[in-house]
């Protein structure tokens, strides 16, 4: 027998008679603080960025002359922006795939029911507790041509005196490596949670049926954690598009703009070259990319949560 009161139904369905206020007297006050902050620091700046992207701006950042889509035409015909965009995409792809694969490996290893598993879980999760800035310092140290262990190791392997961070490919690899490291803790923790919620019965049945552990992974684990996996991929992609800290600290966008990813380019154009119009147009391109990724996430993973 199922009646409504057996499930957790939002109490919203039934306001009590004594509590029915006009809307401006009740919910309004609960929402007001957040609405004010969002209006001033999210909606307004978003509108202003769109607005600025349509104007040529002077050095103080004030809109000087309406240029329509001129700024967009400019950035898309600017080889540097194109390079930035291409490199961003390369970075995003490598970073996301790397993070997910590493996290999968870590999670798979850490779900084993053995002694000391808790210690390894903490170890694998630890990178989530290291900020991007601190992590960048750790990696700068590793990449340093004279004292960095990676550089020293490469030299001993016969690569000679390499300065990874001044080599275009090397810098890209360095940024990707450090970013994968930084992202792995978060992805690992999420996957671990998902893996642990797969009922043990499934594996027991599969073992009885003589399935190999690889087959179990592909036929049980992956499908069962696929919602989390999908969520993580989208989150990683969004995060990667916004990558900034590592760039600013490790490579400064260089060498030769190889690692000048889009979020960093927005910052440079706005705050170093004071070209607000161009920076705004670039920011809108970034926004469109992020919005599409987020929309995909909402659409395909959160449906059950939104429309319960």
């Amino acid at each position: 027998m199922v009646s409504h009161n057996e499930t957790a139904v939002p109490a919203t369905a039934t306001p009590t008679p004594a509590k029915r206020h006009p809307w401006w007297r009740s919910a309004f006050w609960f929402l007001l603080p957040s609405l004010v902050i969002m209006t001033v620091f999210t909606y307004y700046p978003m509108v202003m960025t769109v607005f600025n992207s349509l104007f040529a701006t002077n050095l103080t950042g004030a809109a000087a002359k309406f240029v329509g889509f001129g700024n967009y035409v400019t950035i898309f015909s600017d080889p540097l922006f194109f390079k930035s965009l291409t490199n961003t995409f390369i970075f995003v792809a490598c970073d996301s795939v790397g993070v997910i694969l590493l996290a999968l490996l870590l999670a798979r290893l850490a779900t084993a029911r053995i002694r000391g598993a808790g210690f390894f879980r903490t170890a694998f999760a630890s990178t989530m507790g290291v900020s991007a800035a601190a992590a960048s310092i750790l990696w700068i140290f590793l990449f340093n041509p004279s004292v960095g262990l990676i550089s020293i190791g490469l030299k001993q392997l016969g690569f000679g005196n390499v300065n990874i961070l001044t080599d275009p490919t090397g810098a890209m690899i360095a940024v990707i490596l450090s970013s994968i490291w930084m992202g792995s803790g978060f992805a690992f923790l999420n996957l671990l949670g998902a893996l642990q919620s797969v009922p043990q019965d499934y594996y027991d049945v599969a073992s009885l049926a003589g399935w190999s552990s690889w087959r179990q992974t592909w036929k049980i684990t992956i499908p069962m954690v696929s919602p989390t996996l999908f969520f993580l991929i989208v989150v990683e992609v969004i995060g990667a598009f916004k990558t900034f800290t590592q760039i600013d600290l490790i490579t400064g966008g260089g060498p030769d703009n190889t690692t000048n990813f889009i979020a960093y380019k927005v910052y440079q154009d706005a705050f170093n070259y004071r070209n607000i119009g161009i920076a705004s147009a670039e920011a809108i391109v970034l926004t469109v990319i992020i919005a599409v990724a987020t929309w995909i996430q909402f659409r395909y993973t959160e449906r059950k949560v939104y429309y319960q």
Binding site: M1, V2, S3, H4, N5, T14, T16, P17, A18
Partner: peptide, 19 residues
């Protein structure tokens, strides 16, 4: 009464939880 016949609703109206 059977499930869905309105028993809980009567009770909640008596309690004043729903009008």
């Amino acid at each position: 009464g059977p499930s869905g016949s309105g028993k809980s609703t009567i009770l909640r109206i008596i309690a004043g939880l729903i009008p």
